[in-house]
């Protein structure tokens, strides 16, 4: 039974990370129809920058912020400098973002090398907690990560559902041409949303480097998980990303624990199942 609890908690940890990574990816896709294949690279960049800043300053919070900002800046630059010029040509954007992810991954390998990094945790988050009721001990950082994902999720929901900026984003998702005809500077909105998505990915990178570890290949892992999460949960919605992340994270950990050599098949099976039953994703809206 203890194993089951631990596996469930591991699944939730992973789900929290997947949610943080996928929600930015989903947001960008929902508004701009851009499949940002460089999303994993943005996450890894955030992780590396966060690691370096934590090493230099000793402040974990500063590391998370720096990682988020670095990836936000990189995301904004990618949209402003490259993807924005091919808006509407989705295939070209996808290919261009693949090129960017290859270049970014290679340059990061150059600068940070092929080694695995783990961010030094602040005292408060190192060590473990004995969980009441379940009777198992669990790493504090992982519990904090779940709380962090929850807070980010709620904040994001508030931003999108309750603010003027969020209303503009939703309007852009619904009918981009109409939004432009009302005078909204779509290019600037796109860049802001790309920065927001990048920031979420970058923070996820620092948190991933704290709760787990990061290395070359982490970018691919989170790109894949983001893809599957939004395919399963539905594109462009925070709730969809949360549900998708929960399913994929849990399935992966149960798979790893109970059928270790076929873990990847579980993720795949969930995706196929959802596509067969609900092609637009569990919480997705059908395409017009």
């Amino acid at each position: 039974m203890t194993l089951f609890f631990i596996v469930t908690l591991n699944g939730l940890t992973l789900a929290a990370l997947y949610f943080l990574a996928a929600t930015g990816f989903s947001l960008i896709f929902g508004l701009m129809r851009t499949v940002n294949m460089a999303h994993g690279a943005l996450l890894l960049l955030g992780g590396y920058v966060g690691f370096s800043v934590v090493e230099a300053t000793g402040s974990w919070g500063l590391g998370v912020i720096a990682g988020g900002l670095a990836a936000a800046l990189a995301g904004a630059l990618v949209q402003f400098g490259i993807l924005g010029w091919m808006q509407g040509d989705e295939l070209r954007q996808t290919l261009a973002s693949i090129a960017i992810s290859i270049i970014m991954a290679d340059l990061m390998l150059w600068h940070w090398g092929g080694i695995t990094y783990q961010v030094t945790l602040p005292e408060l988050l190192s060590g473990g907690q004995r969980l009441p009721l379940l009777g198992v001990g669990y790493a504090s950082i992982r519990l904090a990560l779940m709380a962090f994902a929850l807070v980010i999720g709620v904040a994001l929901w508030f931003l999108i559902q309750k603010t003027r900026f969020g209303a503009v984003i939703r309007a852009g998702v619904d009918d981009q041409a109409m939004l432009r005809a009302l005078g909204f500077p779509i290019k600037r909105i796109f860049i802001s949303v790309f920065a927001l998505g990048g920031m979420l990915a970058g923070m996820a990178g620092v948190v991933a480097a704290s709760a787990l570890s990061i290395a070359p290949g982490t970018d691919l892992q989170f790109l894949l998980s983001s893809l599957v999460v939004v395919i399963v949960g539905g594109m462009g919605s925070v709730g969809g990303a949360a549900l998708g992340a929960l399913l994929v994270g849990l399935a992966e950990q149960y798979g790893l624990a109970y059928a270790p050599t076929y873990g990847a098949v579980f993720t795949f099976a969930i995706m196929v199942l959802v596509l067969a039953v609900r092609p637009q994703g569990l919480l997705g809206r059908a395409e017009k």
Binding site: R33, V35, E90, L91, T94, L220, L223, L224, L227, V228, V230, I231, P260, T261, Y262, G263, A264, V265, T267, F268, M271, V272, L275, A276, P279
Partner: peptide, 27 residues
């Protein structure tokens, strides 16, 4: 699996299939 998907959706789904296979061969 990808029968109903076009364009970027097909890319995402086939990429997920391809990478899932990669992880399978590794595990």
């Amino acid at each position: 699996v990808a029968r109903r998907s076009r364009g970027i959706y097909a890319i995402m789904i086939t990429l997920a299939i391809g990478v899932a296979f990669f992880y399978l061969t590794r595990q």
